[in-house]
Nucleic acid binder design. Structure first.
Lengths: 130, 130
DNA sequence: AGTAAATTACGCACTTTTTTGTAACCACGA
DNA sequence: TCGTGGTTACAAAAAAGTGCGTAATTTACT
């Protein structure tokens, strides 16, 4: 497992939160305690392996707590730590920024990706602005 | 170029901010206008390909503005948009959370190492120790 | 004076590295 | 045999690194 080496706190958080899953998992975990299989149901496209990997990472970052119960079949529960809970509003703020402030996030409907494709065909936007 | 398709604002921002470079570039750009070569100097380990790619992504996300000047050698300047500037405190908040709230971020490595040995709960620092 | 080289910000093709997916296996009791 | 949560080995895919080419002008050298 890769260790965090960077001295810059922003670089370090991003090392944990980067990628598709961390924020999604946090999102689902803020609803309460979840089991491994719950999280897979919440997000059907994550692979078995990825889920364990991401949960481990979140655990090591002190965002998620893992509780293992004796008995069979094996039962494991995941929940946000208090630090993890404090992280939630910060992530929400990013989502909010995207929706309300970012010019990309506000796009009303499906024409988001399509026109950027046209725009990159060679016509620079520099000439238009002014 | 991959388009953003997800409906979830958090997923979408993370698609833009994920990885090593986006937040770093934003960090340097908040200091003011930078040229391509400035950003390479600021961060010597990024390859020219990555830098262009990441700048494009930031541009498409409306975080960074690219200005091309005529003349030779070619001159291009990058700066944060107003939306980009509004993003800065949110990213800083994450870094702050890491330092002050996350149990991993506040590793007191400047103190005597003997103390931290006892304080170690379950979080492994493997790789960090010389 | 003539030619070569450097300059800046890339694009493109190719290679290497990293990440992720897939599938099989483990433990055990119902 | 199924189900749970997890590990491992191997394969596929994605991301990133490398090096070359490009533009028009200046500088460097002969």
């Amino acid at each position: 497992m890769k260790s965090i080496v960077s001295r810059c706190p922003i670089e370090e958080v991003m090392q944990v939160l980067s990628g598709r899953w961390p924020t999604l998992l946090i999102y689902y975990l803020k609803q309460g305690t979840k089991r491994f299989s719950d999280l897979r149901r919440d997000n059907p496209t994550i692979s078995h392996k990825m889920l364990t990997l991401e949960l481990r990472k979140l655990e090591q970052a002190g965002i998620v707590e893992r509780t293992e119960f004796d008995g069979y079949p094996l039962r494991v529960e995941y929940q946000l730590t208090s630090a993890g809970h404090k992280l939630v509003p910060l992530i929400d703020a990013l989502g909010d920024w995207w929706e309300t402030t970012s010019p990309v996030g506000e796009q009303p409907n499906t024409l988001n990706a399509a026109d950027t494709l046209n725009a990159e065909t060679g016509v620079s936007k520099d000439g238009l602005s002014g």
